[in-house]
């Protein structure tokens, strides 16, 4: 795929204050390990040859979710124009893991970074028709201005980091 959406993705992420970490399947674990603040929760990653560091709890209790500092999940797509990731929640718990921890680490394959909303909605529509029950287009951390000033981190994560698997 052309590198253009990736460059746009990176600059969009920078604009919204989200770090992008580039890595490969092989180096994933060693890249991720120092970035995972424990306690950490996660969901199994669907990318071939990519595994979560041991410190990440993949069968969390409610209390684990509540206290987690890091939540690692795969995300279905990245959206270059907006710096968004699409969290597709399923039985493994991507939704709660990406939502409760202080920081969401979103792992996306380079080949899943799409240029714009048009392209994403074509895919999302197809996914829904094939039975994907839930997709959240998440852009940056949760936020609120309801308390008189803008605050990063409302009910959801305060921080988001995107890990890009360049060879997937």
């Amino acid at each position: 795929m052309s590198t253009e959406p990736l460059a746009t993705f990176e600059s969009s992420l920078t604009e919204i204050g989200v770090d992008l970490v580039r890595t490969t399947a092989e180096e994933f674990e060693s890249t991720l390990a120092p970035r995972v603040d424990t306690p950490a929760v996660g969901t199994p990653l669907p990318f071939e040859g990519v595994a979560l560091p041991d410190a990440v709890e993949t069968d969390p209790t409610v209390a684990d979710l509540e206290t987690a500092r890091t939540g690692v999940t795969a995300v279905g797509y990245g959206i270059a124009d907006y710096g968004s990731v699409v969290v597709q929640g399923g039985p493994a718990g991507e939704e709660p893991v990406s939502l409760y921890a202080d920081e969401h680490v979103a792992v996306v394959a380079a080949s899943d970074v799409l240029p714009d909303m048009d392209a994403v909605f074509d895919r999302l529509a197809a996914d829904v028709r094939e039975g994907t029950g839930q997709a959240v287009i998440a852009t940056g951390p949760s936020a609120t201005a309801d308390m008189g000033a803008l605050v990063r981190g409302a009910h959801g994560p305060m921080d988001v980091t995107v890990v890009l698997l360049e060879d997937r």
Binding site: P91, G133, I137, A138, T139, P141, S142
Partner: peptide, 18 residues
């Protein structure tokens, strides 16, 4: 440009519950 979350729910979903 976009709010933090744009959720597409096609319920009932299969995310684990509390």
């Amino acid at each position: 440009d976009i709010t933090s979350y744009l959720s597409l729910f096609t319920p009932p979903g299969d995310s684990p519950t509390f």
